[in-house]
Simulated assay, not measured.
Amino acid sequence: MTTTDLDGGPDRGPQPPRALIVTLLGLYVRELGGWISVSGLIRLMAAAGVDEQAVRSALTRLKRRGIVESERRGGVAGYALSTYAGRVLELGDRRIFAARPDSERDWVVVVFSVPESERQRRHTLRARLSWLGFGTVASGVWIAPGHLAQDTREALLAEGLEPYVDLFRAEYLAFGDPVAKVAQWWDLDALEQLYDDFLDAHGPALRRWGRAGAEVPSGAEAFADHLRALTAWRRLPYLDPGLPTDLLPEDWSGTRAAETFFALHHTLAGPAHDFVTAQAAASRPG
């Protein structure tokens, strides 16, 4: 399970309201007790440039997917996070905000075989491994850096896919150049383009707020920039397995994208949090 499962997977172009709402749920609503009023959510999303109709439409879709549940508190209409969504978001914290090891040389290898009669399970397994960041060595043999072993084990167990899989830790001994092999196993060009897109979209916000002598961002502005940056960023740690730097192309844009995201997060998280807390408090029952 990944946080992208909650909002329907990656999108290119403008961020859909459902993805922004999932980010808000994961970053703030869990801290607020797992519930937020409809009016509070609409007000917060308006600060991010999303109109009320789009918010209500996205909430309907998220409710249908089992991400949120309608719940009234003190006569106030609102939405609560489902148990499923809470579990996925908790697991996502580790992947999205954790620092990646930079020098490890062990690998986790998945070898699987799924009967033709269970073709859908094969599709699910491949999709899950892709979202975990695995590369493809051969049909039925997928590989990722060793630090993903625990995430992989948990994901396969959660999906009931373990009967089809053997899971190994491994060391690459021979016979190719590891840098060339990594470029075969992963589509690094496509991944770097995603990082470049992130830098193009969110680098200006860091230059605006992070330069020396910059004004302190207002709560609403901090919230909007933080929400959009995190919504764009939270997909990338699932697509990027966190390969050692010396196996990546020179001037890897993923490094600059990570620095940009964490600098924005450090700058904007405080005022954004205060803004959300104030807006949510104004709409809570009683």
Rank of each mutant, 00 (worst) to 15 (best):
Q193H: 05
T267M: 13
E192V: 03
Q193E: 11
T267K: 15
P17W: 01
P101A: 15
Y28F: 11
R64Q: 02
L132M: 01
S113K: 13
P10D: 00
S70G: 12
E259H: 13
I96Y: 06
V165W: 08
A19W: 01
H147A: 14
T4K: 00
S139C: 10
W142D: 12
A232D: 14
W252C: 07
R228I: 08
E171R: 09
S130I: 02
G8F: 00
G242D: 13
P241W: 12
P244N: 07
W35R: 07
D225P: 07
G33K: 05
D51V: 15
R208E: 07
G286L: 02
G86H: 08
K63Q: 11
K181P: 03
R228M: 04
P244Q: 06
S139M: 06
A170C: 04
Q184Y: 13
E104H: 14
D251N: 11
L199W: 07
V55E: 12
R228Y: 01
A281M: 03
K63H: 09
D187R: 02
D166A: 13
T23L: 03
L230M: 09
P285M: 05
S283R: 01
R43P: 00
G176D: 15
E154C: 08
D166E: 09
Q53S: 08
R119D: 07
R284I: 00
Y28W: 14
L148K: 12
F275T: 00
D151S: 03
A48K: 10
A58H: 06
I67Y: 03
R126M: 11
G9F: 01
F261E: 09
Y164A: 00
R64C: 00
T255L: 15
K181R: 13
D274G: 08
R18M: 03
G86T: 11
E171M: 03
S82M: 04
Q15N: 04
Y84L: 09
L41A: 08
Y84W: 13
V110T: 09
G160Q: 01
T124S: 14
W131H: 03
L268W: 11
L188A: 06
V29T: 13
L167E: 01
F198G: 05
A280M: 04
S218C: 07
W209M: 05
V109R: 06
L230Y: 10
T124F: 04
A280K: 07
G75I: 10
D240Q: 09
R95C: 00
V29K: 14
D177E: 13
A281P: 02
G13I: 07
P285C: 08
V50F: 06
H226S: 02
L199D: 05
V88A: 07
L32S: 04
F134R: 02
W107C: 11
T124Y: 02
G86Q: 10
L81D: 12
L125I: 11
R121E: 01
S57L: 04
A98N: 11
A158E: 14
